[in-house]
Every structure is written in structure tokens, then in C-alpha cells.
Computed example of a mutant assay.
Amino acid sequence: MNAIRPTNTANPTYRLGIDLGGTKIEAVLLDPEGHSLLRERMSTPRDPDGPDEYKKIRQSVHTLIQSTLEKVPQGQACTIGVGIPGTINARSGLVQNANTTGLIGHPFQEDLERLLGRPIAMENDANCFTLAEARQGAAKGFHLVFGIILGTGCGGGISIGGRIHTGQHRIGGEWGHFSVDPAGTRCYCGNQGCVETKISGDGVARSFFEHTGRRLTLEQITEGYRQGNTACSTVFEQFLDDFGRCLGGLISILDPDAVVLGGGVSNIDELYTLGLQQVRRYAFHEHVQTPILKHQLGDSAGVIGAAWIGK
């Protein structure tokens, strides 16, 4: 295991993180050793059909940052990082592919920097999750970490030496939209059979409906599998096979020191047993030893990761 080098503490820095979600905006302030000093939350303004949703979100985030900065000891430096449910287009600087649709097409980072009068960092929530688990969670001490958020969708991030690797186009880790089945379900991104259509909660539920004409959640399908229901078992076993193929292929390409899973789907215990067997089956190595780890930080990962990306 390749350990992350300790952060330079010659010039102590406080870290402020903001996690912007669909229902809440959360702030955290970390001291120079990474300990949480305070946490604050507010509801995310929602007005999907209104013209002012973006302005309300921007103002709420700005207000929360300002109130948190007031808690930083006088004279101490403090970085700011913001995690969002989307990505920043590397060319235009505009938000794209955001679940909070009011952000799409707006220069959110630029606008916040202008309001604050200083630079900030901004990354998607999967990158923040990955960084938090690599620095303070389940994957602490591993050099190259691939983080996966499995929920209604499927996101990913790459941490190398305790830093997020975004890539030339700021899409590093966007594993969920890698097409693994050209004959598969059409994804909202426009491609066919993306990883997200195969192993996200919504993807598995859709597969069950296509097979049976009945609607069950992945949680219900999992319980049915455990009770021996034939239809649930067929779909759940396919889910495990797809999980193994998708993650096994990724391990063959990236060969990370560890993989950490988050999101609601990551709480399915079979992923770490039967799913792991399938990963080893599909990876291009006869003795794959890559740890597949369950998250440790839970809902805190996003905001803690946002604090660590700050500038």
C-alpha cells in the first residue's frame, strides 16, 4: 500500500467546504489538522420552473460561505471548496450535467468568486466523495483511489496522492457514462448501455420492469433475491454480473490501489462478496487483490471532500 504523504503544516490553513445538494446546502470548517470545527445546513432553494432559482441558490451558497468564514480565527488563512451535483465545462466555465437543473448553463464558480472577491475551487460531488474517503475515510493511506457513487445514478472520481485527478476535460472518473453494451438501454447522455444504465438503482429497477412488467426498487429486488424469488433473483444476479464486468474492466485499465463505494446501492452486502467474485472474474489478472471498500464517512463525505479541494 502506497501511503499519502502528510499535508504540509508549516503554514496552517483552515478549510471551508460547501456541499450543494438537491435538498440541502451544507458547510463544514476544518482546522489545519482536518478536524471539523462546525457544520451548518440550510435548505436548497427550489423553483425549477421559475427564472430566479439560480440566483437564489447562488445567494444561499454565498451567505453560507460568508457566515462560516466569520468563524475562522482572525489572521488565519482559509481555503474554500464547493462540491456540486454536476460538472464545470473546461472550455466555457459553465455548469453542465447537473441534477440541480437551475445551475446548468451558468458560470457558477465565476459568479461566486466575483461575489467573494477571491478564488475558490469547485468539483462535482463524486470527486469530493472520493477525495474525502481517500484522505479521511475507508481508503485513507492508499495512493491511487477510484471512488464510486452508486445511487439513482452512477458517478466516479480519481484521487492520486490525496489529490483529485480531473483530466484535460475535467471528466476524469466519469465512469458512469462509459458504454459497455451498444445494444443496451439508451442513456440520457445519448449513448447506449452506459454503466449507469446497468448498475445504478434506477437502471436495475428499469431492468426488472422490462423483464416482468412490475415496478420494484432495487432495495425490494434485493430483498426478493434473498427470499428466493425467481424474477428478483434473475435480475439481481444480472446486476452482480454487470457490476463485476464494469468494475473489473475499470480495474484492468486503471489498476487502482483501492476502490471505495458510496451511495445507497453501496449498502448492499452482496457487492462485497458475490460482486467481488464477479469483479475478479472479469479483471485482466488471475489474482486480483484490489480492495473493494465500503464508505466510512457516509453523508459527510461530500462536504469534507469539498473542504479538501479548496483554494
Score class of each variant (00 low, 15 high):
Gly264Ile: 01
Glu33Phe: 09
Thr101Asn: 11
Ala183Met: 13
Val204Phe: 06
Leu297Asp: 08
Ala307Leu: 10
Ala205Trp: 13
Gly157Asp: 09
Asp242Ile: 09
Asp125Met: 04
Cys128Asp: 03
Gly161Lys: 08
Asp257Cys: 01
Ala3Phe: 13
Ile160Met: 13
Asp269Trp: 00
Asn124His: 14
Gln109Asp: 05
Ile65His: 00
Thr44Val: 01
Leu131Lys: 13
Ile221Leu: 04
Pro291Phe: 10
Tyr14Asp: 00
Ile253Pro: 03
Leu271Met: 06
Leu112His: 07
Val145Trp: 07
Asn124Lys: 05
Phe284Cys: 10
Arg186Cys: 12
Gly201Asp: 06
Glu113Ala: 02
Ile221Arg: 11
Ala98Glu: 02
Asp111Tyr: 09
Thr87Tyr: 11
Asn8Asp: 15
Phe146Thr: 04
Cys78Ile: 10
Thr9Asp: 12
Phe108Cys: 11
Leu64Asp: 05
His285Ile: 12
Asn97Trp: 09
Gly50His: 05
Gly153Val: 05
Ser252His: 00
Leu297Arg: 11
Thr68Asp: 01
Arg280Trp: 04
Gly213Lys: 11
Arg215His: 14
Thr273Pro: 00
Arg58Glu: 13
Glu110Gln: 14
Gly83Ile: 04
Gly83Glu: 03
Gly105Val: 13
Ile4Tyr: 03
Gly302Val: 12
Asp19Met: 03
Asp52Met: 06
Arg118Ala: 13
Arg281Asn: 08
Arg163Phe: 04
Met42Trp: 00
Asp111Met: 11
Arg281Ala: 05
Arg135Trp: 05
Pro107Glu: 07
Thr185Arg: 13
Gly262His: 01
Ala306Leu: 05
Leu29Arg: 01
Ala307Asp: 03
Gln96His: 02
Arg15Lys: 14
Pro45Gln: 07
His165Lys: 03
Gly310Leu: 12
Gly83Met: 09
Asn99Ala: 14
His287Val: 14
Glu270His: 14
Leu276Ala: 06
Asp111Thr: 09
Lys294Met: 02
Val61Tyr: 04
Ile199Pro: 02
Thr130Gln: 02
Asn99Gln: 09
Ala258Gln: 09
Ser43Leu: 15
Gly184Arg: 05
Leu218Cys: 03
Thr230Gly: 02
Asn267Ala: 12
Asp299Asn: 15
Gly137Cys: 11
Glu223Arg: 15
